[in-house]
Amino acid sequence: MAMNRDWKKQVTSIPPGTLIQGKFKGNNYMMKRKLGEGAIGTVYLCQHGNQTAALKISEKQTSMTLEVNVLKALKQVRGNLLGPALLDVDDWLAPNGRTYTFYVMEYVQGESVQQFFRKNGASWLGLFMVQLLEDLEKLHEAGWVFGDLKTDNLLISQAPPRIRWIDVGGVTQIGRAIKEYTEFYDRGYWGLGSRRAEPSYDLFALAIIFLEIFYPQRFSRPETRRASFLFKRIDRVKALQPYAPVLKKAITGTYTSSNQMKREVKQIIFSRKNQSKRETGKIGLLEAMWIFLFSILSILTSLCF
């Protein structure tokens, strides 16, 4: 990344304690530590008065402005938790004389998806699938696609456990070309669809996310027969078995809306509950047979006398 070498060093390693002041609105933010780094910018934990927040900073003014546009648009779809809340937008005139664009958003605390499943086990799979699908449904209905849907862009916040989105940089208007993506989760990379923003693009990535929980080392793309390669990966995971048909449909792009997929996932969850009920029901049947036998016996004995 030769072109960006110079600025990158500065904006990706702002030392803790640095005070960032907005050029236009003058709000102050004390940098605490780096939270992460993406294609567009770097995210820091910062302090504003006694409020803790996340601050994303970059020299890519245009891309940053587009992200702010998305966060503002998501505000309209609120009432739910689509992405972090936007708190401030401004420029920073750095000591090196360059101007960087930054925005401040709500700091979402939580565990990574991998951490969560390592601790809590696979029984949460169905719930998170439904939660993600519900959020995606709202997003899609508002005319957007998440785009860069991947494990790194998700967090699980606690009490009660809820899956949250932390980076909306890839959110793209439906019908346009996906703005930002990560190869492993991109159906175009797998040769299983276009990079046009449509609900099925997100559903493919969602299937890969659930697959990745069980393949944290990931796997590389074969040259041919890629769909059946992914199918085999799904089939090898016992915990994914109930969801295998749904995940496979997501990979082949069968669903045109998250709602269709959500309904099928719910059906699977409930039919599993019914199955366990039926098992208890069998014991009841056995008991009933005993009661029946006893009653026949007692009738027989009463007939004898």
């Binding site: 003014q61 401004d90 925005y103």
Partner: peptide, 13 residues
């Protein structure tokens, strides 16, 4: 750059 970031949105769009 001279336009307030809040107002850049439409232009960038």
């Amino acid at each position: 750059e001279d336009i307030e970031p809040e107002k850049r949105g439409e232009i960038v769009e």
